[in-house]
Design a protein around this nucleic acid. Structure first.
Ligand SMILES: [Zn+2]
Ligand SMILES: [Zn+2]
Ligand SMILES: [Zn+2]
Ligand SMILES: [Zn+2]
Lengths: 184, 184
DNA sequence: TGAGGTCATGCTGACCAGA
DNA sequence: TCTGGTCAGCATGACCTCA
C-alpha cells in the first residue's frame, strides 16, 4: 500500500521527465493505484472566480469538532483535493475544465502543464514549461543560492498539492527537467 | 530501506506515545536504521546564542553553485540537521547538551521533551508536555476549527524537523497524546 | 505554572512593468 | 513572450502578560 506509493514516487522523481509528463496520456490523472489517489491534478469543483491575493489556505469549518477529519482515522488520502500549508487557492484559470491531456481550451488555446508539479503552466520559464509557483521558487532558489536538504530520501513526490512539502526535492525536480538560470 | 522507514513511522505515529517517548531510553536518538537517519532530535553543533525572532530558515551559501547539494544526487537524508521550510532556528535553549534521556541540566532542572514532536518542551500545554510550536499549532487549530487533510496516508512522521510538513498528522498526533481544549 | 495574545519572520505565488 | 521585481497573504513559534 504505502510501499507501492513510495515506489511510484521514487520512480517518477528519478526519471528526467518526472511528475506529469507533458504530451502523454493521462487517463483520469493518475489512477494507477486505486486506493492511493495522489491527485496529481486536484480537481476542485468549487465556484470559479478570480480573487486577487485571496489565499484561504486551510478549511475552517463552522462546526465545533471539525478537526476530527484526520483524528486517528486512516483512510485513503486525497479523497478530495485539499489545500496545502501553502496550497494557494487555484485561480479560476486553474479550475477550468481540466482536459485529459493537452486538450484544447474553449478558445482553442492548448493547455500546458508545469513540468515540475503538473499545475497549469504560465509559459516557458528558465527554459522549461512551468507554472508561476515553480518559476518563482526556482528564481528565489538560484538568486539566493539556496541550499535545501531533504528530510526523507530525496525522492519526495512533487505535485501541485505537495510541491511545498520539500524544497530540496522541488529544486531537484526543477533541475531534472532542465530548468536553468539562463533560460537555456 | 524506505519501507523500513515508513513502517517505523506508522508504528510510531499510531502509538499513543508516538514520537519521542518521554522517560524512555534513547540510545543516541534513533539509530535503529543506520542508513536512514531520521534525526528525531537534530543536534546542531552550531554556535549558541539567542536572537530574538531571527529565523534564517534556509541555508544560503556564498558560492555560486550552491544548490547542487540535492541536484540529482541521492544520499542518505539527514546527514546533518537541516532547517525546514518553517524550521525556525533552534534557540540556544534547544541546543544545550541534549542528554541521553530525561537527563539533568547544568542547573539540575530536568529537561522534558514535547510529546508531539520531541522538541524541548516549554511546559504542559493543553494537558500535555509540549513545545511552544506544538502548543501554538494546537491553539490555532482548535480556535480556528481547522480542517487539515493528509496528502499521504495519515502516517506522516512527526518530529522536530518535519512537524510542519503535514498539519493533519501533526494535529492527529496532538490528539493522540491527548491534547485537549480544556487542558485536561 | 499555563492560559490567551502578539507579532516579527520569511515563504509563496499572483501580478505587473519592461525588454 | 519571458524576465526581474513586487507584495499581499499567511503559518509559524518565540515571547509577552495575566490569573
Ligand atoms: Zn509547477
Ligand atoms: Zn524531499
Ligand atoms: Zn512539539
Ligand atoms: Zn500526513
Amino acid at each position: 500500500m504505502y510501499e507501492n506509493q513510495v515506489e511510484v514516487c521514487a520512480e517518477r522523481c528519478e526519471s528526467p521527465l518526472a511528475g506529469l509528463p507533458i504530451n502523454q496520456t493521462l487517463t483520469s490523472s493518475g489512477s494507477e493505484s486505486p486506493n492511493v489517489s495522489r491527485s496529481s491534478t486536484p480537481d476542485l469543483n468549487t465556484e470559479e472566480q478570480v480573487v486577487k491575493h485571496s489565499t484561504p489556505l486551510n478549511r475552517q469549518s463552522g462546526s465545533e469538532n471539525a478537526y476530527n477529519v484526520c483524528a486517528g482515522l486512516v483512510y485513503p488520502a486525497q479523497l478530495f483535493a485539499s489545500p496545502n500549508m501553502f496550497q494557494f487557492r487555484q485561480s479560476a484559470r486553474s479550475q477550468e475544465n481540466r482536459p485529459e491531456h493537452f486538450a484544447q481550451n474553449r478558445g482553442g488555446k492548448p493547455v500546458n502543464y508545469c513540468s515540475v508539479c503538473g499545475d497549469r503552466a504560465s509559459g516557458k520559464h528558465y527554459g522549461v514549461l512551468s507554472c508561476d509557483g515553480c518559476r518563482g521558487f526556482f528564481k528565489r532558489s538560484i538568486r539566493g543560492n539556496m541550499e535545501y536538504v531533504c528530510k526523507e530520501n530525496n525522492n519526495c513526490f512533487i505535485d501541485v498539492s505537495r510541491r511545498n512539502q520539500c524544497q530540496a526535492c522541488r529544486l531537484r525536480k526543477c533541475l531534472q527537467v532542465k530548468m536553468n538560470r539562463d533560460g537555456e
